[in-house]
């Protein structure tokens, strides 16, 4: 195992460092990377940088685009005034019944399920502190708890 670790190249380790920091790798892969980063300063440094960068990205609030380009494209490309009545007339009465019942059922299910839709998340105000995990390792639990309690 030691020989294998020693032979592992930084090029094969570095692409997996972020996944490693998130705990997404298998036990054996994690062991290999852990052993490698103990010996290889460069990979250890990159690991810390990747984790810090991920932390920074997480601290940035989500941004919504000012203009939804796809909506603009749809407006330009959407077919207008297409008549589909001939399709309806071409099918038999049984098929029409099934289609109509299906549509009503979908509407009923969608209406019923709409009661379970989560209330949209309040957006995190700009400048809110996202503390370092070692400072407040239970921050996510507390914030989630407060969110739920406030919605009760």
């Amino acid at each position: 195992m030691k020989v294998k670790v020693a032979l592992m190249k930084c090029e094969s380790i570095q692409p997996n460092l972020l996944d490693y920091s998130k705990g997404l790798l298998s036990r054996s892969e994690s062991e290999e990377i852990r052993a490698h980063t103990k010996k290889c300063v460069e990979c250890a440094v990159i690991l810390e940088e990747e984790m810090a960068f991920a932390c920074k990205l997480a601290a940035i609030p989500e941004e919504k685009p000012v203009n939804d380009v796809w909506a603009l494209v749809r407006v330009k490309t959407k077919p207008r005034g297409l008549y589909l009545g001939f399709v309806w007339n071409a099918v038999g009465i049984r098929a029409r019944r099934l289609v109509a019942i299906g549509a009503v059922l979908i509407a009923v299910v969608a209406f019923a399920c709409s009661f379970n839709q989560p209330v949209p998340e309040p957006t995190r105000p700009q400048g809110t502190l996202v503390v370092v995990a070692s400072d407040d390792p239970l921050a996510r639990q507390t914030d989630t708890m407060i969110d739920i309690m406030e919605r009760m």
Binding site: M51, A52, C55, K56, V130, T144
Partner: peptide, 22 residues
């Protein structure tokens, strides 16, 4: 249910500290 899925990644050290090392 609310916490299921990826949450914010939190590094265990200060950002500039990590940059200093790199």
């Amino acid at each position: 249910k609310k916490m299921h899925g990826p949450g914010p990644e939190r590094a265990f050290f200060r950002e500039d500290e990590a940059f200093e090392l790199g």
